[in-house]
């Protein structure tokens, strides 16, 4: 079983959900993102999701796009992402990478899988790669022992949910709403239904993302999902802060609040 699988099992045994915190690599700088992700781990985030910044992130809302633009303008390269993965994995927290597909194709799918595994990454979340197009990634992830997290959506038919989870390893990513990343004032009504549909087809842990930004929302989602995935709200801590130190302080505060939320599931 993968390191993430082990972490999910332990959380399940403890009667809580796992907190997955997402941050674009290289935002606000390579060193700054390592500091931010390390702070998140110290404040109680269980799994770090390192997003490779991309010029055309169609599944992301304005907050993550802005952070990605800052990272790219700072000159971050795909190879820097791997360095960040390695540094954050050294904290002991499982590190998963989220990426749009073109940067991986450009790097070379098998070469990237090899280098990600060597850096200590557990696998990839692929927002614009569906299993239908993923032959090369299926082979590379098998060859290098990496997890594959494909997304399921409220609009997915049962047949597609079944097909998608069959190709997942590690955990399944359920998108809570029809829309892009970004904190929302209400959590989704569609998410619990989607999670129970996924559970009809797999025993893999299910993480829920899109729109979660507060401890209370994390608690609600922890009531029905195995993992709570938070991105934009964490990124905003750094974007809105007057200084990097203030940003890190805000990031620690929110991470701790979310960590408390996933430990007190609303049932």
């Amino acid at each position: 079983m993968s390191r993430i699988g082990v972490a999910f099992d332990k959380a399940r045994a403890d009667g809580r959900a796992l907190l997955v915190g997402c941050m674009p690599a290289g935002f606000p700088s390579v060193e700054g993102s390592i500091a931010a992700m390390t702070a998140m781990v110290e404040a109680g985030v269980d799994v770090i999701e390192v997003e490779i910044p991309y010029s055309d992130p169609v599944m992301d809302g304005p907050v993550i796009q802005k952070a990605s633009d800052i990272a790219l303008a700072g000159g971050v390269r795909t190879a820097d992402t791997l360095r960040i993965v390695e540094a954050v994995a050294a904290t002991g927290a499982p590190v998963v990478t989220m990426t749009y597909w073109n940067p991986i194709e450009r790097y070379g799918v098998d070469v990237f899988a090899r280098d990600l595994a060597a850096a200590g990454g557990t696998g990839l979340i692929t927002p614009d790669l569906i299993p239908d197009e993923a032959d090369e990634w299926l082979a590379a992830s098998d060859a290098h022992g990496l997890d594959r997290t494909f997304l399921v959506s409220p609009s997915s038919t049962d047949a597609r949910v079944a097909m998608t989870v069959e190709h997942c390893r590690g955990f399944v990513y359920a998108t809570a709403v029809m829309g892009v990343t970004g904190a929302r004032s209400r959590t989704s009504d569609a998410a619990p239904t989607l999670v129970s549909r996924v559970r009809e087809f797999t025993d893999l842990p299910v993480g829920v993302g899109l729109g979660v930004g507060t401890g209370a929302q994390a608690s609600t989602v922890a009531g029905y999902a195995d993992g709570v995935i938070v991105g934009s709200a964490l990124v905003r801590c750094l974007l809105d802060a007057p200084s990097e130190a203030d940003g890190l302080a805000a990031l620690r505060t929110l991470s701790a609040e979310l960590a408390e939320g996933v430990r007190t599931p609303t049932r």
Binding site: D132, E133, S153, S156, R160, T175, M178
Partner: peptide, 20 residues
Amino acid sequence: STGHFGRFGGRFVPEALVAA
């Protein structure tokens, strides 16, 4: 049948759009 012209084309989209 899945929209490929040789090695080109296909669907590189979020799962949310596949049904549409």
